[in-house]
Design a protein around this nucleic acid. Sequence first.
DNA 1: CACTGGAAAATGCCGC
DNA 2: GCGGCATTTTCCAGTG
Lengths: 93, 93, 93, 93
Amino acid sequence: MADTISSDSVAQDQIRAFIERIERLEEEKASIAGDIKEVYAEAKGNGFDTKVLRKIVSIRKQDHNERMEQEALLELYLTALGMAAAPTDSDDE
Amino acid sequence: MADTISSDSVAQDQIRAFIERIERLEEEKASIAGDIKEVYAEAKGNGFDTKVLRKIVSIRKQDHNERMEQEALLELYLTALGMAAAPTDSDDE
Amino acid sequence: MADTISSDSVAQDQIRAFIERIERLEEEKASIAGDIKEVYAEAKGNGFDTKVLRKIVSIRKQDHNERMEQEALLELYLTALGMAAAPTDSDDE
Amino acid sequence: MADTISSDSVAQDQIRAFIERIERLEEEKASIAGDIKEVYAEAKGNGFDTKVLRKIVSIRKQDHNERMEQEALLELYLTALGMAAAPTDSDDE
DNA sequence: CACTGGAAAATGCCGC
DNA sequence: GCGGCATTTTCCAGTG
């Protein structure tokens, strides 16, 4: 109350900053989503069935996830056995 | 069949290329989604309610979308009236 | 297995009952969807552009949704403040 | 321009009327959709897997559609052969 | 840890 | 028949 610059206004500024960062990132994300759509469209233009393509991508993603899980499981086993696993340079953040 | 390099293998290569492009883009998208999550987490760490933040972002997005739709409606009116609308440099792909 | 009427058959009956209820409702829904289509067709018959009509309806729906979300946001604020109905001097936007 | 009540205002009224009719119907539709959701929720509360239920409903709908198509095809054949098909009290509006 | 709500993907539909 | 659009379904993070 006594402050010239109230803590409320600081909070306000912080909120704005966070929201702007988020919105910026969401824009980027939307942009990339657009790119993906374009690639599918281009593929379709070259005579490929987008449905099939999507299926393939989906399956490969599944595979990838499964591999990640298996590696995680392996690491779990190793650590449980007191054996430190060599740090893998994970291709997924 | 007569070709040394069958058209099938060409199609194969094309499919691979498309899929790789898509997967690359999807990775980028996922990465950005991760960034967004981080921002929310950081905001939460600074004492902000994530739920409120998400709602605000959502409302602002709705605002934006509605404006877009209203412009689209205007264009519809104009085209319906046979008046070519001045090409707007759309901020949305 | 001890029961004359197995619990399985009871479950069966329950499933049937649920599915029938759902299917009945879906029929109603489809019927109304048909009515909507008819209205659009009638409007078109009276010289109105369906696309424009749909856009208008869509925008009005968005309006409504946004108001709902804003009210929800207000409630979020209030609950965050312990339900104190503080007057909002919204100097925002 | 010469009319006291311009044709434009008549068109306006017509549009309003159409839009109100549509919105009314959409409300009904949404209401029924809500009912359906409730039924699924109730089923879930009784220990049923909603995903499975949805699948069942979907499959049955497919079956139904196929039967309709086959009947339509049959009628087509009959009319093509100059044989009037007995009017079926169609269960589909 | 199951549930709810919201985002994303997939499907189907309608008009051109 | 195809592209765009609405709906539907699936997925996932957050929450109690």
